[in-house]
Simulated scan of single mutants.
Amino acid sequence: MDKYVNLIKLSVGSESVETLADWQQTRAAQSEDGLPRHVTRMWPKREAEILKGGSIYWVIKGQVQCRQRILRMDEVMGSDGIRRCAIVLDPDLHRTQSAQKRPFQGWRYLKPEDTPPDLPKTRHSEDALPDDLNRALAEIGVL
Rank of each mutant, 00 (worst) to 15 (best):
S16H: 04
V76K: 05
T122A: 12
E49D: 15
L20K: 02
H38I: 15
D131H: 07
Q24M: 14
K45F: 03
A86P: 05
A28H: 12
V17D: 01
A86I: 10
K101F: 06
I140Y: 07
W58T: 05
T26E: 06
M1V: 11
Y109Q: 06
W58F: 13
D2V: 13
P117D: 11
R102I: 00
E113G: 01
L93H: 12
L35Y: 11
R37V: 06
I50C: 07
H94A: 06
D2P: 15
R69H: 14
E15I: 07
Q24G: 07
P117Q: 03
V59I: 15
M1H: 09
R27S: 14
D2H: 11
D22K: 12
E126W: 07
S14G: 06
L51R: 07
A128S: 13
T40I: 13
R84F: 05
E32K: 10
D118I: 07
I60E: 03
M42R: 15
R72E: 11
D118H: 01
K52Q: 15
L10K: 03
D2A: 15
R108I: 02
R135W: 09
L143Q: 15
A29D: 04
P91C: 05
V17L: 01
Q25L: 11
L89W: 08
E49A: 15
H38S: 11
I70V: 15
E49F: 12
S31N: 15
Q63N: 10
E18M: 04
R27K: 14
L110P: 01
R123Q: 14
T96Y: 01
L137R: 13
P116V: 12
P103S: 13
A28M: 12
R41Q: 13
K45Y: 05
R135L: 13
V39F: 00
A136R: 14
Q100F: 12
H38G: 01
N134L: 08
M1E: 10
Q65T: 15
Q24C: 09
L20R: 01
I8T: 12
T40G: 01
P130K: 10
Q100T: 14
T96H: 00
D22S: 10
G13Y: 06
C66Q: 04
D118W: 02
R72P: 08
M1N: 09
R27N: 09
A99R: 09
A48P: 03
R135V: 13
D33L: 03
Q63L: 14
D92G: 00
R108A: 14
K9D: 01
I8Y: 02
K111Y: 08
M42G: 00
A86K: 06
M77Q: 10
K3M: 10
L133F: 10
N6Y: 01
T40D: 00
I87P: 04
A29S: 15
V76Y: 04
